[in-house]
Every structure is written in C-alpha cells, then in structure tokens.
Amino acid sequence: MKAQTLTPASKSGRAAQATGERRKGKSKSVGWWPWLFVVPTVAGIGVFYLWPIVQTFYYSFTKWGVFGGTKFIGLDNYVRMFADSTIPQSILNTLIYTVVVLLGIPIAVILASLIERPGLRFAALYRTLYFIPYITMPAAVGIVWRLIYNGDFGPINWFLGLFGIQGPYWTSTPGFALLAVATVGLWMSLGFNLIIISAGLREIPRELFEAAEMDGASRVRQFFSITVPLLTPSIFFVTIVTVISGFQLFDLLYVMMGKANLAMPQTQSLVYIFYNQAFLQNDKGYAAAIGILILVIIALLTAFQFRIQKRWVNYV
C-alpha cells in the first residue's frame, strides 16, 4: 500500500503548481453541461472521502465507547495527545524513515543517468529490474523481507557472518528495526523514482551535453552542471511523493514487525498509532484526534515544500 500511495500523494504537489498557472479563458462551457461531467465523481469523493474527514474531526472531540455511543468531551483527546510521549517519538521515527527513503532519490538520479546514457544496451532490461519491486504486493514482500532480516537464519546475517560480523536481530532491535523497514521502503520506491527521473532526463536537450562536451567538460562535470540542475523539477516531484508517503507509513510496519515487538516504540509511525488506538484498543475518539494531527502535519509539510521549492527548483 505504501508504494501505491506514493503517486496519488505526489500529485498534490503538481496540483498547486498547475493551479498556479491557471490557463486563460476557456469559458466555452455553458449551463449545466460541466456539472454532468463533474457531479458523479465529486459527489462520490464527497461521500466517501470528504465526509469521513468531517466525521473524524467531530469524533476527535468525543469519547467513543467500545460499543458505540459518543459523548462530547471537548478538547480532552487533544490534551491527552499532547501529553502522550509516544506521539513525538513516532513523529521522529517518521522523519528518520523519510530521510532514509529520501536517500533513494540521489541513487535514482545516478542510476537514471547511467541507464539513459546514449546507446546503452540493455537499458530496457535495467529499467525492468529496478521497477519490479514497485509493482510487488506489499503484504507479500513483507514476509520475504522478514525472512531476509531474520537474525538467526536470514541471508543478511549469514553474509555478515562471512566477514566475522555478528548481525543484529534487524526487525526486533530498537534502532535497527526502523532502518530495516526504511530500507524496504527505499527498495520499493526506487523503481518509481527512477522512472520519473529517467523521463525527466530524456527531456533534457542533448544539445546541452554536446555543447558541454565541446567545451571539454567531463562526464562528472556534465552530471553536476547540467543533469542535476535540469532535473530539479523531477527531483522535487519525487521528493514530495516520498515525504508524503513517508507520513503514511503503515503497511510495512504491520507486515514486518509483528506483535509484541520490543522495537515498536522506536519504529512506529503516527498512522500506526492511529490504527492501533482505533482498531486494536478501540479508543476511536483518541484515534480521531491523532488523525487530525496527521492531517495538519501533512498539510504543513506540503506548504513548506512549496515555499522552499523556488529556492532550488529550476523551471526553465
């Protein structure tokens, strides 16, 4: 699920961008025609997505009993949330996770610039290899990774053992578990980032490289002075995707960590706490307050990213 949520989330970034450059005069539509096109989808989105958010907001001010029956309790859930030490820890966990997955972006830029080299053979094969993890089922690969990380018979620790290194119990040791989960996140998103950045690369006019070559610029220099700057829009796009999906981290934790995991406090995300409170502990009012916090954080982050993008994204 995480991998899939990447794309939609990302779109919002582009949304604001595109809305910014709203197209001029297309007032060709008359009367009720536009509504015929729009109403089915907008109504559905309203019912299935907007209404739940409104409800969540309402429930965040209530105590919701195990067997239903809501009671208005004002700000109690929020007061409790700000006193709850697991909340800041989980935000920190989410940040660390996101930073690790963000490391996949420079990797993707380097790999894309290799794959998109003129006349490179097997380029299609390479793209396929890197893209396959993106289309795998998270619930399925989660189990595979659990085995790979297994402290006793997993291949990673066996490999480390060849060099005399005693590997940790990756998914159940505080600190390592978050790293292990984030590595899988990176693995799953790398192919997507690579394809987006490859597409961006192919948009860079070849003439620029040829000119640079004539000036005697090395490949490395071309990479840093042409490729990277002209790729910043694509990089910005995948960054937003990564950050937003980072804040939606849930499935991997669920599949890989198991219950009664010692490392959970140092690994769990905000969404995981939401889920835990809402569905395992049946404390839905409190969960709703956490849900609202998630909404606020994501909105702030996105706004922040758009504010700073002007500083480093080159729109030619």
Binding site: Y254, F279, K284
Partner: peptide, 16 residues
C-alpha cells in the same frame, strides 16, 4: 502470532 491480523481492524470496524 498472526502478524498480519489486519482482520482485527475489520472486527473493530464492524463492531462499531
């Protein structure tokens, strides 16, 4: 240990 006990969520939702 059913580490994929998403169904717990299902049960909880339904009970609501």
């Amino acid at each position: 240990r059913s580490f994929l006990s998403f169904a717990a969520a299902g049960a909880a939702v339904v009970s609501l």
